[in-house]
Amino acid sequence: MKFQLPVFMLLVALLFACQPDSTVTPQNSTVNVIKIAVSNTPLSAPLFIAHKKGFFKQHGLNVELIEHEGGVKCFEALITEQVDFATASETVAMFNSFYRSDFAILTSFVESDNDIKLISLSAKKYQNLASIKNAKIGIIKGSASEFFFDSLLILHHQQDLPLERVYLKPNELLAALENGEVDAISAWEPLGYQILQRSQNANQVMSTKGLYNLSFNLIGLKQNQVSLKDRQSLLKALSDAIDFISENPTESQLIVSQTLDMDLQQLRYLWKDYSFRVSLSNALVSNIQSQAQWAIDNRLVLKDNRIDVRMIIDKQLFESAISQHQDEH
């Protein structure tokens, strides 16, 4: 039996309509997932906001954020290839540069000159730096916590002060201080705020605002499966998130507060010390170089393993991504 022409044409049209459109990506498309190890601190705000507000998706990325306690753990996840990228301070990058050069900083996305503090539970006993003589100090080894503490001693000519360093994990600091295992801790936020709120006896041994300018960075392995285009898109998404933070500080704080399950008042207290921007400045290079010299002087690393800092900074990727982003806007 022969089809009538109108019926035949209708069937052909329906057949073509059922074919997948190669120009459209379906919602359940298996776009490669990019995994980022993120330190669960407000410093990671641009990544939380890029994820929540859809900036990663707008740039064609499928991103999964995996939270860890601190930048050291994030970097460990990176080098063991559990993730594609990690967030960490420049101190973590500096220490690791003595042992490997297969990673690179893609961008810094936030700075703070008041994120790390020296906190005790004996306000009367520990009123200044000299008073911590013979004290036990809780420190996170190989991190900004350790560099900050040594910088504090050097600045006040107390580097020969007798004391005991107790190396702890980030999630062990508060308990160690409250249980009397240490007399003070060199801790980043929000740990400092938490202990100050939990105990009336807690105090900041001395004001350290402006002493140390910490940066948080996006770091990746030089050889990975993420394309150049997607790496550029990551930086563009972070830039969009930072623009959003600047224009919508209240909503941004609410997003971060909910993401970290942090008290909003606590977050607002910390927020004023943060400067969000994507950058790879000469100040970052200088900071890493000075920290590397400190690590050598204190025999924390082998001098012979020192590399040129520029080997672990992907300036070319950064400049290409920012140039493209500016052209698109």
Results as ranks from 00 to 15, higher is better:
residue 5 L to G: 06
residue 10 L to Q: 11
residue 11 L to E: 09
residue 15 L to V: 12
residue 16 F to S: 12
residue 17 A to L: 12
residue 27 Q to C: 05
residue 29 S to Q: 13
residue 33 V to T: 15
residue 38 V to H: 03
residue 40 N to G: 13
residue 42 P to M: 08
residue 43 L to Q: 12
residue 43 L to C: 04
residue 46 P to Y: 00
residue 46 P to S: 09
residue 46 P to C: 04
residue 49 I to Y: 01
residue 51 H to G: 07
residue 53 K to Q: 14
residue 62 N to V: 12
residue 65 L to I: 11
residue 69 E to D: 15
residue 74 C to F: 02
residue 80 T to V: 11
residue 88 A to V: 07
residue 99 Y to W: 04
residue 100 R to P: 02
residue 103 F to Y: 14
residue 110 V to R: 02
residue 112 S to P: 01
residue 112 S to T: 09
residue 112 S to L: 01
residue 113 D to A: 13
residue 114 N to Q: 09
residue 117 K to R: 15
residue 119 I to L: 09
residue 123 A to L: 02
residue 123 A to I: 11
residue 125 K to Q: 15
residue 126 Y to P: 04
residue 128 N to V: 05
residue 136 K to R: 15
residue 138 G to A: 10
residue 141 K to G: 00
residue 145 S to P: 03
residue 147 F to Q: 11
residue 162 P to I: 10
residue 162 P to D: 11
residue 163 L to N: 10
residue 166 V to W: 00
residue 176 A to D: 06
residue 179 N to E: 12
residue 183 D to L: 04
residue 185 I to W: 02
residue 185 I to S: 06
residue 187 A to Q: 08
residue 193 Y to E: 11
residue 196 L to C: 04
residue 197 Q to G: 09
residue 199 S to C: 03
residue 200 Q to N: 15
residue 207 S to A: 11
residue 210 G to I: 13
residue 212 Y to S: 05
residue 216 F to L: 13
residue 234 L to S: 07
residue 234 L to C: 05
residue 241 A to K: 01
residue 243 D to K: 06
residue 244 F to S: 02
residue 257 S to D: 10
residue 262 M to I: 12
residue 265 Q to W: 00
residue 266 Q to I: 05
residue 268 R to K: 14
residue 270 L to P: 03
residue 281 S to W: 02
residue 281 S to N: 13
residue 289 Q to N: 15
residue 290 S to L: 07
residue 290 S to D: 14
residue 292 A to V: 04
residue 293 Q to P: 01
residue 293 Q to R: 10
residue 305 N to M: 03
residue 310 R to A: 08
residue 310 R to F: 01
residue 315 K to Q: 15
residue 319 E to H: 11
residue 319 E to I: 12
residue 323 S to T: 15
residue 325 H to R: 05
residue 329 H to L: 07
